[in-house]
Amino acid sequence: MSETLERRLATHPRYAALQAEVAEFLFHEVELIDDRRYDEWLALLAEDLVYFMPQRMNVKFGEHAARENTRAGTGISWFEEDKWTLGKRVAQIQTGVHYAEEPLSRVCHMLSNVRITAAVPSLDDPAEVTVSSRFLVYQNRVEYENYTFIGKRHDVLRRHGDSWLVARREILLDQTVLLAKNLSIFF
């Protein structure tokens, strides 16, 4: 969506209320993760969810749009998962013998810069909204292990009764070589 369209969206009379509603939903969602209420978190994910974290690359100026990130649907990324796989990840933690998360890490998600960049069919009665945000996720593991994951998220949320479901999540971690031994947490 172009900058002008985004601005037009932001000045729409309905924008502020919808932005607040969507932000509240996202804050609630990460709270479930940080509180380790994984089953409740899974319930917020659409059945046809795409959960995607590309790898990032150093490329020549001018090639960023084409080559900076790995793409969904082809090749290898950090994550390209569906709800089934995320359910498996939750089930794995719940076995109590997934040693990369046993004992559990302490995880704290901070979300900011929440903006609606598209609404379908309209802001007045949206069935789906595209939301961009920034994340800072802190992970503390066992005693001395600390990781900070910072980046951008692009979510597509689908209207579900008086709440939302996550239909698509793209997680752009701002690192090329992953500066962590594992990605054992949810974003």
Binding site: M53, T74, W78, E80, R89, H98, A100, K181, N182, L183
Partner: peptide, 21 residues
């Protein structure tokens, strides 16, 4: 590729436990 991603490396469900060890 989907199987590789869920199995291998730092995001892989199997090899995370190797890295921990």
């Amino acid at each position: 590729r989907r199987y590789y991603m869920r199995y291998s490396g730092p995001a892989g469900m199997t090899e995370q436990d190797d890295m921990e060890n």
